[in-house]
Deep mutational scan, measured.
Amino acid sequence: IRCIGVSNRDFVEGMSGGTWVDVVLEHGGCVTVMAQDKPTVDIELVTTTVSNMAEVRSYCYEASISDMASDSRCPTQGEAYLDKQSDTQYVCKRTLVDRGWGNGCGLFGKGSLVTCAKFTCSKKMTGKSIQPENLEYRIMLSVHGSQHSGMIVNDTGYETDENRAKVEVTPNSPRAEATLGGFGSLGLDCEPRTGLDFSDLYYLTMNNKHWLVHKEWFHDIPLPWHAGADTGTPHWNNKEALVEFKDAHAKRQTVVVLGSQEGAVHTALAGALEAEMDGAKGKLFSGHLKCRLKMDKLRLKGVSYSLCTAAFTFTKVPAETLHGTVTVEVQYAGTDGPCKIPVQMAVDMQTLTPVGRLITANPVITESTENSKMMLELDPPFGDSYIVIGVGDKKITHHWHRSGSTIGKAFEATVRGAKRMAVLGDTAWDFGSVGGVFNSLGKGIHQIFGAAFKSLFGGMSWFSQILIGTLLVWLGLNTKNGSISLTCLALGGVMIFLSTAVSA
């Protein structure tokens, strides 16, 4: 259960009878995928790494000078000259100064003066180019299975845990398959586009800190620079940016070097996208990844198990997540596992009318040892309800109150669905055939309105939902006002479609 501690969480529900669903994975976010007769899966884009970055340009932001020398000439005696002028490691300046009897010249006039100092770069920052084909995306998957609280967001041991898996995709191999043991396998067909235009970005490294910066900004930095990788004795261009020549006297000129420019660069980098280094690879934390999940090989585990009949206890007080759902960790005293956990939410304890829904599909106890633990997640209705676990006299209950409203949740879900469709863009549509167009249209309606429909009408039977949709269509056909007619027709059509397409 990876997503319960992530604030940016998206719930995606598969269409009834569908074998695939489109998701948008982004750094700092987590996606929970639910479908009829399929286990619930949490998917998170953990890291995006980039390798084989080529150094484009380096800037010196802290330097020192040494070996200063000057040469001067009297008027009419030609130009002052130093051998160091031809050495690229030196920074030199030529000027004219007033000369006369007082400073060793027989004539009054302008004399030539040249001053040089050896330039040494102490600290530099480097910009590297990123090729999209060198990106690698690491995705962690977790099935809502027989897990306890100690396994949440624990990325170790996934090789031997059938509840978890790690997959890596690249532009050259965008397809992967996550093996989930008894739950089958989940196929991923990803489109490795981060949403960032790397043709316009460089990877900047300064003092063990890293950013993504725009090329134009990078090339306009007014500091000494050299092109390409460091060859040991780089040729620094624009050395004068960190060196200041003071007022010249008759035979000498003082040279000083400016202080470190790291603070000024940090100020200019305010708002830039931060990154990290992992050995020789860069780690990015921006952008998104679009994936199509193929769920035809994914299956529920323990459908044929019998119900657990022994007593359950709450190991922890049920807690609310950031998303309005409830996490419950229970301990089973029996030894008759594997068995299914009898769990439901009810409005009252007399009729036990089921409300809400299970995020953890078909929760089971897989071990036959005593005191096995299991964590599950529920989506309670707004208002008061009861969490009921167990059967008969051994069942345990917990009162729950959820604040908020169904309308607010439906609106929030619609906005999130619209954002998801905007990110998917043209990849969500198939114009290759008439059937493809209608299929894409259905998927689009489901992406945007599916979660809201589930919130508003999830407790009704599909037949009642179709009746309401048919009534809206009838009202649309018999209303003389054009805008009201079109609105009723659209709402009725969407409702009829979703009542037959969205899983219960």
Results as ranks from 00 to 15, higher is better:
Q147N: 00
N172A: 02
M277Y: 04
P192S: 15
H288T: 02
G459P: 04
P363Q: 07
A490D: 00
S372A: 15
E370N: 07
K373F: 06
G459Y: 13
D37K: 06
Q77F: 06
K215Q: 15
V317K: 03
T351V: 14
M151R: 11
S260H: 12
G184F: 08
V243N: 04
M151D: 06
L486Y: 03
F11Q: 07
V6D: 06
L498K: 09
L498S: 02
Y61C: 12
A452K: 09
A452E: 07
G104K: 05
I396C: 12
K294S: 04
S260R: 03
K246H: 14
G324T: 08
G5W: 07
W462G: 07
R252Y: 08
L82T: 04
S199F: 14
F218R: 02
V494R: 00
K209T: 09
G259K: 07
V213T: 05
N237Q: 15
I396D: 01
V330Y: 09
M349R: 12
W101H: 07
S66I: 14
G259E: 09
Q465R: 14
T366K: 01
F497C: 09
P222Q: 03
A280R: 14
K38P: 00
C3L: 01
A418K: 08
K38D: 08
G106I: 11
F218S: 07
E377R: 00
I466F: 15
F453A: 05
L96F: 15
V50C: 06
S185F: 15
L284N: 07
L441Y: 12
V256F: 14
L107G: 03
E412T: 08
A54R: 01
E191W: 10
S86D: 06
A250V: 11
L113E: 02
E370F: 06
L307A: 14
T19V: 03
D230Q: 01
G228M: 08
P318H: 04
C60L: 02
L273C: 11
T470V: 15
T76S: 15
R99L: 03
G157R: 09
V328L: 07
I221M: 15
A490P: 02
V364Y: 13
E367A: 09
G444Y: 07
D393G: 09
V143F: 06
A346Q: 00
S306D: 00
A80W: 11
K409T: 03
A346I: 03
A176Q: 04
T205E: 11
K209V: 06
S70C: 10
R94D: 10
T205L: 00
V437Y: 03
D37E: 12
D98V: 06
T19K: 06
C291Q: 05
F312A: 05
V388P: 00
T47Q: 02
L322M: 14
I1Y: 03
A361N: 05
L113N: 02
S7G: 12
C339D: 08
V355W: 09
R9I: 08
W400A: 07
L25Q: 06
T115M: 11
V415L: 15
V328H: 06
L269H: 12
T315W: 00
T126A: 09
L491D: 13
E162F: 04
A176K: 06
A418G: 02
T170M: 13
T160P: 00
E320P: 01
G482F: 12
T327C: 05
K301Q: 13
P380C: 09
L378T: 02
L322C: 04
N439G: 14
A410T: 10
M151I: 08
F11G: 03
G17D: 11
A264Y: 09
N8V: 03
G182W: 05
M375F: 15
T406G: 00
G459A: 10
T309M: 12
W20V: 03
L269M: 12
G302I: 09
T315E: 09
D220E: 12
L269K: 11
A80Q: 09
F382P: 06
P354M: 13
Q350K: 14
G492M: 10
W225R: 06
G324H: 11
S66H: 08
D384C: 05
M277H: 05
G184I: 05
G100A: 08
T500F: 07
G150D: 15
W20Y: 07
F449V: 10
K251D: 03
G271Q: 12
